[in-house]
Design a protein around this nucleic acid. Structure first.
Length: 583
DNA sequence: GCCGTTTTCGGCCCGACTGTTTTCAGTCG
């Protein structure tokens, strides 16, 4: 799929054009890049099927950019891009990652100091060469160095799941501070993005000074960047930054909307405001000088003639158009996406029978406390030696133990139940490492790829499809195999996988583990559109991981999945039937 | 360069902050 490559090229072209002070084209290229990035369908497929006109139907892509896409699909290059790069052979994306460095600064750095990449920028900053450039100064130089250091240390962004609990602690401390009235998290963390740059928190208070003083004196704060009455900014011990903003009560909704983003979503909303003769900013919606909304987000959306849009959906990738159609009564409108309390059981949990840490009984206890109606134990199987995978004999012994536990629940009139499954390995040829006779005795079977991930696309797709056609298999775990920031997804034909999943009634997993989040949002959206069933699991190897489920749910919400799409929102009876293939 | 229930020209999102050039360009969200 060449969508991402093209997105990167157009985004770079946008920056090069900004350098040349070309007006309006940069925005056009940026928009094209963004839309390509979030496009669920393979742009090459669209072209093959519908030709240039198909491409032009993609928002933000017209005659010229369509031509450039075709040029790239045919020859792997875009002349206009090569030309721009030739004039200024800099790694523009790498350099503009630096806080406060944009296209214009990149140009100045190149023209005066011949800086083309991050390394050269760092050397020049250390040699104090940057401060002498026109329009630059000591402070800018220092900030560039600081930002490079930060980037090096953290590679820019944090996995949401790695810092979420820290953020919740900060929120709860602030919430309990008596001067704080309203409080909410904002930014990408509120939208439950996979990775986040920093944390934004909004509060209202009668006494900004006391709140800000309290905030910057929190025990985990190691550095104070800003300390004002409307905005303070700090670095926490774990390495991430938190911005706290104090806003007026009547502006809380508009500020929350504004600071939650995404930027693209907000731009689209402001355009709607203009069409209606209104002005939208972080202080409210205004008709002339008169404020007509601002206290709540619902009010903001209503004033624009829109239904409330959930934060996870605010990406400007179709949610506004869909919502607009809803208000005009021409469409089903926005789906009612799954809630954070809708999951009835987690079916991908490892116990201490294989590599996991905890006894099944303890896991079940925690799950009951979480309000689950059932769980499923799905340990690794024998091919995975490193995880102490179970063989047939051990699986049957485990089955006995689980039956015993269920009998105990039944004797105590507890409705909670433990299902018994396993996470079998899909071997090179698509067969599983546990024989069918044993698999058929389990309540359900998860199959997943854990080896030879670099197969060619065709072979890998056939391998997984063969496993899906095994009548004992019910779920495919982490279907694309990606690890965020560490490993790309393996080459598969996801459309084919979806087709077969639909045909065989197999659920694809949304794995909630912070660095997996596999399927990702665009895949989820596709699966939902195709009517393929999904399941949100944690892949817990410890009871401490069970709470990761919220990241999987966030992922599902970003993919517009509803309760009916997710099989583990169903009651036990129904999910059992699904596993018996009777649904 | 894109886009169009004010369609094939003439528009294109808004405000704050930062550093520095003492009036504003560049960047960010």
């Amino acid at each position: 799929m060449k969508n991402q490559e093209l997105a990167k090229i157009f985004s770079e072209m946008s920056m090069f054009l900004k350098i040349k002070n070309v007006s309006f084209k940069p925005q056009a290229y940026e928009k094209a890049a963004l839309n390509l990035k979030s496009l669920t369908e393979d742009v090459e497929k669209i072209y093959k099927r519908e030709g240039k006109n198909g491409l032009k139907r993609i928002p933000g892509i017209g005659e010229n950019i369509a031509e450039k896409i075709i040029e790239y699909l045919k020859g792997g290059k875009i002349k206009a891009y090569e030309k721009l790069k030739q004039k200024m052979p800099v790694k523009i994306q790498e350099l503009t990652q630096i806080e406060s460095v944009g296209p214009k600064m990149v140009a100045a750095l190149y023209q005066h100091l011949a800086i083309t990449n991050l390394k050269e920028l760092e050397v020049a900053a250390r040699q104090k060469k940057i401060r002498n450039l026109p329009n630059f100064g000591v402070k800018t130089e220092e900030n560039i160095l600081k930002s490079i250091m930060f980037l090096k240390r953290n590679k820019g962004r944090f996995l949401l799941g790695h810092i979420y609990s820290r953020v919740e602690e900060i929120l709860s401390l602030l919430k309990n501070f008596k001067e704080v009235k309203k409080i909410s998290i904002a930014g990408s963390a509120r939208r439950m993005k996979e990775t986040i740059g920093d944390i934004d928190i909004l509060v209202t208070t009668e006494n900004p000074k006391k709140v800000m003083d309290y905030f910057i004196s929190l025990p985990e704060v190691i550095k104070i960047w800003d300390h004002g009455l409307t905005k303070s900014s700090v670095r926490m011990r774990d390495g991430f930054d938190v911005d706290l903003r104090v806003v007026k009560d009547r502006e809380f909704g508009s500020a929350l909307q504004y600071f939650t983003g995404s930027k693209e979503h907000n731009i689209a909303l402001r355009k709607i405001a203009i069409e209606k003769g209104l002005k939208l900013n972080e202080y409210g919606i205004f008709k002339g000088k008169k404020r007509i909304a601002g206290k709540t987000e619902e009010e903001i959306y209503a004033a624009l003639g829109l239904p409330y849009i959930e934060p996870e959906m605010r990406t400007n990738t179709g949610e506004i158009e869909t919502a607009l159609r809803q208000t005009r009564g021409k469409h089903n409108g926005l789906p009612k996406i799954i809630n954070y309390n809708s999951i009835k059981g987690d079916l991908h949990i490892h116990s201490n029978w294989n590599g996991g840490e905890d006894f099944i009984k303890e896991i079940a206890k925690v799950a009951q406390d979480m309000g689950y109606e059932y769980i499923g134990i799905s340990d690794h199987t024998k091919f995975l030696r490193i995880e102490h995978g179970l063989n047939e004999k051990q699986l049957l012994a485990q089955h006995k133990e689980i039956r015993k536990l269920n009998r105990e629940y039944s004797m105590h009139n507890t409705e909670f139940r433990i299902l018994h499954g396993c996470e079998a390995n899909i071997l090179e040829d698509g067969t599983l490492d546990i024989n069918d006779k044993v698999l058929s005795q389990l309540d359900y079977v998860i199959a997943g790829v854990h080896s030879q991930m670099k197969m060619p696309k065709k072979q890998m797709t056939e391998r997984i499809i063969r496993a899906m056609r095994n009548p004992n298999v019910d779920i495919i775990s982490h279907p694309t195999g990606r690890l965020i920031k560490r490993r790309d997804e393996y080459a598969i034909d996801f459309d084919k996988i979806l087709e077969v999943a639909k045909e065989t009634n197999i659920a694809l997993e949304i794995n909630s583990f912070p660095d997996r989040l596999d399927l990702k949002d665009t895949n989820i959206k596709k699966a939902v559109e195709q009517g393929v069933k999904l399941i949100i699991n944690t892949d817990s190897h410890s009871i401490n991981h069970l709470g990761f489920i919220k990241f999987g749910i966030g992922q599902a919400r970003r993919g517009w999945a509803t309760k009916k799409d997710i099989i583990n929102t169903w009651p036990l009876k129904k999910i059992k039937k699904f596993f018996e293939k009777k649904v």
